[in-house]
Design a binder for these strands. Structure first.
Lengths: 220, 220
DNA sequence: GCAGTATTCCAGTAATAAATGGAATGTATA
DNA sequence: TATACATTCCATTTATTACTGGAATACTGC
């Protein structure tokens, strides 16, 4: 535990890289980006055993990517700082370009359904300021409650069809969900277009919006 | 449902992350950031064998971070795109924040503990069972020989400084001597902390430990 | 205090990665 | 064509990492 600087930093460097060098852990971080979650919840969402999830989380904590606090008998984890999401964004960017397989997958998921360009943060922010759009969060209500883009309304995907009447008919609709690879948004856009709405999706999801420091809200 | 596609993508993320989760490979990328280089040159600069360097480079290539072209009998590698360096920058930023945070925590931890809070018998016993600590007896050797806490090593106070190398660097150290008012232990703790060790002293000394019926040993 | 629940700790085992030395593949030059 | 040279491929040993199931720990509510 000698505090000799350079070596210390190098160790941390490797620790962080190692921490994100595992699909499960990346998934855990992305889940946490949507809000605080207990170990059990994370284990279920990522389809890991509780023990295993706990170990991954502790590795992430040692690397300084997530923090934990106790709340009753649960331990709630959250992402430590925004720069963690920036790191994942950089990672995704490189991965997308370099690995042909990702292109193929993304293509097959989005290309047919969503030919229109997805919206950037800037554009969404601008249109929100002018109040020109209806913004829909299609994630499950709990995730919406944990945190959402300020100004959004919550309509989980499975409720969309029977709640169409809530939408102003002639106003453009923008949809978002968990992130750039979340198909909920794409499906919602397809459904809305089929009903004649001018619908588009946000290029990425809530975590990235939050990471960019843009306005968010919690609860109802 | 997106999960199958998304899982694939997380795995691809992991592939790229794995490529940078190794000190040698990070070094190779940083060397390549300065320009094209041959395998042999890279091997020499990074002090790897040619074979080993070649394997690392191929892993980097599979992850899409570097590209290779042939020029005469050499193969020249270079960084594929600028975003690779952005990725390393993001990684460094997160790692540095992590270190800073750890330093801060460690600092305050030491500070508030420095004045008070010596270890209880129970706590020492528990940590000894788990083998998590180095236990030092700082009394003169004769007293150690006559009887000491089982599991302790003997380093009289006046030998401590020149025998620091015997201590596992990252393991907490616990010090004890004759009793609660014996200053040897306090001095040893101060010396060890100055060298960066996580050191604490036992609340009281050997006589009380023995009196409590806890495990002891004699001679060597 | 006691039981119940959530999380973490702790082996042991299976899977994966790193390093090494020897052989094979390409490529330029005599 | 033969030869030297740079790189890659392959097989082996060694070291790390991921996962699992059974404890231990920490907290809640009675």
């Amino acid at each position: 535990m000698s505090s000799s600087g350079a070596k210390h930093i190098f160790e941390q460097f490797a620790l962080v890289a190692q921490a994100i060098a595992n699909g499960h852990r990346v998934e855990l971080i992305e889940l946490l980006a949507q809000g605080e979650r207990s170990v059990e919840a994370l284990a279920e969402l990522s389809e890991l055993t509780v023990t295993n999830a706990s170990q991954h989380l502790q590795l992430l904590r040692r690397a300084g990517l997530v923090t934990a606090r106790r709340s009753g008998k649960r331990v709630l984890y959250r992402v430590t700082e925004r720069d963690v999401m920036d790191l994942l964004t950089a990672l995704r960017r490189t991965a997308e370009r370099g690995v042909a397989e990702i292109d193929r997958i993304v293509q097959s998921y989005f290309h047919e359904r969503d030919t229109l360009e997805p919206l950037s943060h800037e554009e969404l922010a601008r249109r929100l300021r002018r109040g020109l759009v209806t913004l829909i969060d299609v994630r499950p209500v709990e995730e919406f409650a944990a945190g959402h883009i300020r100004g959004a309304i919550s309509i989980p995907l499975d409720e969309l069809k029977r709640r169409l009447h809530e939408l102003p008919a002639k106003r453009p609709v923008i949809v978002y969900c968990r992130g750039p690879y979340c198909v909920f948004a794409a499906q919602a856009v397809a459904a809305l277009r089929a009903k004649g709405y001018d619908a588009r999706r946000l290029a990425d999801g809530y975590p990235q919006w939050w990471a960019a420091g843009r306005p968010v809200a919690t609860a109802a």
